[in-house]
Amino acid sequence: MIEALEILTTASLWAAVLRIATPLIFGALGALICERSGVLNLGIEGIMTLGAMIAWLAAYQGADLWVALAAAAAAGACFGLLHAVLTVPLGLSQHVSGLGITLFASSFTYYVYRLVVVVGDAPPTIEPFRPLAIPGLSDLPFVGPVVFAQTAPTYAALAAAGLCAWILARTPLGLAVRMAGENPHAVEAQGLNPLSIRTGAVVVGSALMALGGAFLTTAAFNSFFPQMVQGRGWICIALVVFAGWRPGKALLGALLFAFFDAYQLRLQHVVEGLPYQLFLMAPYLLSIVALIAVARRGRAPEALMAPYRRGER
């Protein structure tokens, strides 16, 4: 019991929280941008898988890690564009199209991976991002190793959350995105095109999702293996609902979730006699509990999942 509490005082736990939260922050922000514009993007799980593999593949072929991240984002944007074309101008079911994108993106990912790495070979490794200690700040007691000795993409994720919140809340662009998700007819009345706004939002959101996947192969681990995303995409979709479609709360939700995940991983070694699977179940159960807790309270964008067709009500 005491041991279980002592974990809470270790800097390594809290550093792990930020590390585990990073892909969730990227993914949840991506899903949030899509949904604020009115498009549910269930392609997230597949797009994260794709991003993870593309980033690894680019780095494995000798690209700089930042170039690898850009390649992953571009690949994610392509699949996002496909989802956008199917759901925005064509107005197809966002549920089915999104699931189709997930199935397509993940099977495409595994197919390409198998072209490069044959069955039976150990997953080839790359040189991942090293922790980037911020001079001065990283020497602070406790806070230093926790916050200021992370890898560069983690800082980028935190910055992206702030940027996303600012753009959505304070800029004309953000207003247009929110309006497309609340009342696309009003966007049309303003002389803007709700279809292009939604398409743009889905493309940008999908690129962010792919970055979340890319973090897994370029910073959290150093290789790609099938099933490595493990439902993180679906957890991001749950986080967006939990956050009431607000970027700041999505960041907090991701951190809270990552805390439980990091804690259960450490608890496994302390608590004896329980199957390890019970601990691994905790994050998924927690997501469902979180959804029940906020049910009925969260207000989804008014026109979420409602396709917009000119001249049709």
Binding site: Q230, G231, I235, I237, A238, M281, Y284, S287, L291
Partner: peptide, 10 residues
Amino acid sequence: VVTTLLTNFI
């Protein structure tokens, strides 16, 4: 959608 997907992992 989300709850059934998460249930698969559980």
